[in-house]
Every structure is written in C-alpha cells, then in structure tokens.
Design a protein around this nucleic acid. Structure first.
Lengths: 221, 221
DNA sequence: AAAAAAGTCAAACGTTTGTTTAAATCATTC
DNA sequence: GAATGATTTAAACAAACGTTTGACTTTTTT
C-alpha cells in the first residue's frame, strides 16, 4: 500500500544493487549481510533465500558486471579490426578498447558512486583464490583475445615480455581507479580521478608507452 | 624448561612476525588474533597486552616496514645525486631507487614468503581511511622527494601529468607483486613473479616508458 | 631475600557474524 | 474462491570475533 522503497517487489535486484555499492566501497568481509539488507530495505533472510550464501551473491554480482564489460570490450575490439580491415591494427585503439569499458563501468547515477574496477580491485586482493575461479571463467578468454591482437600490433615485443606488460596493464586499470584517493593526496588537490574520460586517456597513454618500451638488458645495482 | 617455540621469550617480536605474514596473505579483517597468536605460539591476550588493539598492532607493523623501505629509497636517491653530481640525474636510476627497495622487501627465509607490497596492497584497498593516515605520515614525504627528482630529470613532462604518472607507478609497484598470481595464469605458467630482480627490472622499464610517454590530445570514442 | 614490576595464562565478556527455521503473507492456478 | 506455490518476515542459532579480567609466574629492583 505505502509507496515506500520495498513496494517495488524486485527484492533480488535491490539486494544486488546495494551489495555492489557496499562491496566496492568496503570489500567483502567488512560488509555484512545486515548492512546490505538494511541499505536495500529488505529482510535479512532474503539474501539466503535468493542467493543461497553471501559468497554466491558476490559471484552472481561479478558474473553480471564482468559479462557486461566483456561484451563491450569485444565489441570495441571487433570495431578495431573492421576499421583497418585487412592490415594489423595499431596498438592504441586496442588498448583503448580494453581500458574504456572497464573504467567507465560505474553504477548508480551519483557523481561519487562506486565502480567495477573498485569492486574487482577489492575482491582481487581480498579473495585471490575465489578470484582465480572468476579469472578462468570470465577474464582469461577475453584477455587472451586482446593479447593476440596486441601481439599482432607490436610484433617487435617478445612474447614473454608481453605477458608481463599486459599483467601490468591490468594491475594499472584496476588500481588507478580503486586507489584514486592517493592521486588527490599526492597532488595536494591539483588532480582528482573524478573525470572518467581523463582517467581513461591517461591510462591509455601510460599503458601504450609501457607495452612498447624498449627492453633493457639485465644490469642493476 | 622445554625447548619448544615459546621459550624464546620475545613474545612481541613473534607476534609481529606472524602478523605480517598473515596480514600480507589474507588481509586485516580475514586474519583473526587467534590465527596470529596460534601461529606465533603465544597467548591470545598477549596481543592486547603488548599492542593495545589489533589495529595498533597493524600500525606498528607498517611503521616498521615502511620506515625500512623509506630509508633504503632515500639512500639510493642520495647515491643517484652523488654519482652524477651537479647535473640533473637521469630518470631510470631514480625510478630504480624507488622500485627496488619495495619490491625486494620480503620477510622470512622461505621462497614463497610474503612481502611488503603485498601487505600494503591489502591494507590500501581494505582500509583506505586508515591508509590515508599512514600516507601522510610515512609515504607522502618520500614520494614528494622523488617527485621533485623526477621533475628535474624529465622537465618536458607537465607537472600535473607527472602526478598522474607517479600515482600509476605506485599502483603498479604494489599491484604487480600483490597480484602476481595473475601473471602465472595469464601466461599459462610461462612467467612467474618469483624472481625479484626480474620483477624489478620489468617494472622499471614499464614505469620509465610510462612517465616519459608523449602526451596525446583529448580525442577518443 | 623481600618487594615491585612486567609478563603470561585460561577463562569469560558482550558483540557481531552468516545461516536456519517456521509461521505469515502474497501471488497464481484450478 | 479455495488451494497451491513463491516470497517475506521475525526470531533464534551456533560460531567466531576483539577485548577484558584476575590469578599466576617470571623478572627486575631495592
């Protein structure tokens, strides 16, 4: 009867939306089911009813979000191939196709809302074993497609070298957004990470330069 | 009388050592005081006796570890300035001075032991508010010294640009070690992050290239 | 050797956690 | 419109958590 929050009836969706915000904000362990259900205005037991366990709720959440990012990444990669059809693509559009969908994957309409990189960054460091499963199922296939595309674009870079550098690129994408508070502190307020397009552009520049860096022979103090 | 573990009496040190290993492995929230004291072979209450609270134990731990890394970093930076005395230094030695002490800050003699980047990576994403305190107290001063040195080494890079790129460098150093399991999966076992010198070298290459990357005007899809 | 201080210990404290239960309510079907 | 299945609800569950307590032992000081 009353037009308050829970009248919408889609309890499942409300739980997912609260969970993704809170998980991205504070991680898995620090976010209790009571926090989630309270924020979602639903009963505590409904999480277990709809998802089974807390962990399966997280799994479902990641499944949703990563699938969306994956689709966008592959679509953009396809467009790369089309645009310069026949010849091997340039590096930058490929990196752009990988970076942009993840960086701009925000949820909620608020300015200071949480995002996919923040969520994944949290879970990655908090539950590495769990994340390995997710990696095999969701990340690996897409990453291998991009690795292949990059290998064609910069054949002068050694294959083993490329594994390292692509790994660095992924670390960078997740961390740059997930730890963006440091940028504010470091620059004493001169830079912030709010502008998504700016963040993506800087990331792309940095990653492209890193991937094409000349290899230096082993010699250091 | 018996020569078992706790006869050494340096309870405080044993707690610190267990804590740093377990915190680096599983983070703060997922590591209970009972895990720590069990691994250290000491009584549960001794943590509160010696450190007050769990959080202050962590603070003490970070204080120790970061101070050590800071000293090494500044000493190496001093050596940079000496070596090419008078003229502005090159970028690479500066980056090297920043990267190496952190990457090789391992504890324990086992091969697969945890390290400072892993610890900091965990706490950074898990307790950002707490980490801001630590940042102001420990990281900020050293980072500003390095920022200045880098600015002299690559004056052609815009100052605001440099904040971004140094932020990326820090993200990279922490994440490359903390998330090193991905490298194994990505390369299907062809690369691992066990070799510290190799890791440091690849990081230095990537970061130097990223910092000196040519700025590209804003245009993207 | 007595007194004082520092450290250790087992037990218990009150909270909070994820999950389960069984009754109540809603929606749909016959 | 009664019956059936799906969903919501309040209450309780055992387990684990960080912390405190007070008696006990060790070490240091006088």
């Amino acid at each position: 009867m009353d037009a308050t929050a829970q009248s919408t009836r889609n309890t499942r969706e409300r739980i997912l939306r609260s969970a993704e915000t809170l998980f991205a904000e504070s991680g898995f362990n620090a976010t209790s089911l009571r926090h989630i259900t309270q924020a979602a205005n639903v009963n505590l037991a409904s999480v277990n009813y709809h998802f089974g366990t807390k962990k399966e709720l997280l799994k479902e959440l990641i499944r949703e979000r990563v699938s969306s990012v994956n689709e966008q990444r592959l679509e953009r990669l396809r467009q790369c191939r089309c645009r310069e059809n026949g010849k091997p693509s340039q590096l930058r559009p490929i990196v752009e196709a990988y970076v942009v969908p993840m960086v701009q994957a925000k949820y909620g309409r608020m300015k200071r809302e949480s995002s996919s990189p923040e969520l994944i960054c949290h879970i990655q460091t908090e539950m590495p074993a769990f994340m390995e499963e997710m990696h095999r199922e969701f990340f690996q296939p897409v990453q291998e497609k991009f690795l292949e595309a990059i290998r064609e674009a910069v054949p002068e870079v050694d294959e083993r070298e490329l594994f390292w550098r692509f790994h660095f690129a992924i670390v960078l994408i997740l961390g740059a957004v997930g730890q963006r508070s440091r940028l504010m502190l470091l620059s004493r307020g001169q830079c912030d990470g709010e502008d998504i397009e700016e963040t993506a552009r800087k990331l792309i520049e940095f990653i492209c330069a890193g991937i094409t860096a000349p290899a230096i022979p082993a010699c250091q103090s």
